[in-house]
């Protein structure tokens, strides 16, 4: 039962975050690039004021996997690093926590560009 509730929370929260983006795309004619930037920056600021932690606690991967979660990791990393190292933590804390995603995307991007070709839409 515990698992079921946890999965339901992840599904609902993750889904709702995407719905917010969908409404923005359809209603404001904002390009998806702008919306993604907005989401990351929102993630950073919501984490900074302490709100996003509740969401992660409640929904776990439902809050980590959307791009707002990327902002969450950046902000968490910076704060933890400042607690540990002081001033230099402002600059060294953010990227290490999101490095996995970025590095893997780069590696897979390189591999994909060599082994696969874009196809016209069906």
């Amino acid at each position: 039962m515990d698992y079921f509730v946890q999965y339901l929370c992840a599904f609902v929260v993750g889904g709702l975050i995407c719905v917010i983006a969908q409404v923005l795309i359809d209603k404001t004619k904002m390009t998806s690039a702008r919306i993604l930037v907005l989401f990351v920056v929102c993630g950073v600021f919501l984490t900074a004021v302490g709100l996003y932690d509740y969401l992660v606690e409640f929904a776990d991967y439902g809050a980590r996997i959307p791009l707002t979660g990327f902002g969450y990791s950046l902000c968490k990393g910076v704060f933890n690093s400042i607690d540990e190292y002081g001033f230099r933590g402002i600059f060294t804390g953010g990227l290490p926590d999101v490095a996995t995603g970025v590095v893997m995307a780069v590696v897979f991007g390189l591999i994909a560009s060599i082994v696969s070709k874009p196809k016209s839409k069906k």
Partner: peptide, 8 residues
Amino acid sequence: FPLELGGQ
């Protein structure tokens, strides 16, 4: 955009 980029 690139062909393989998802979007509507």
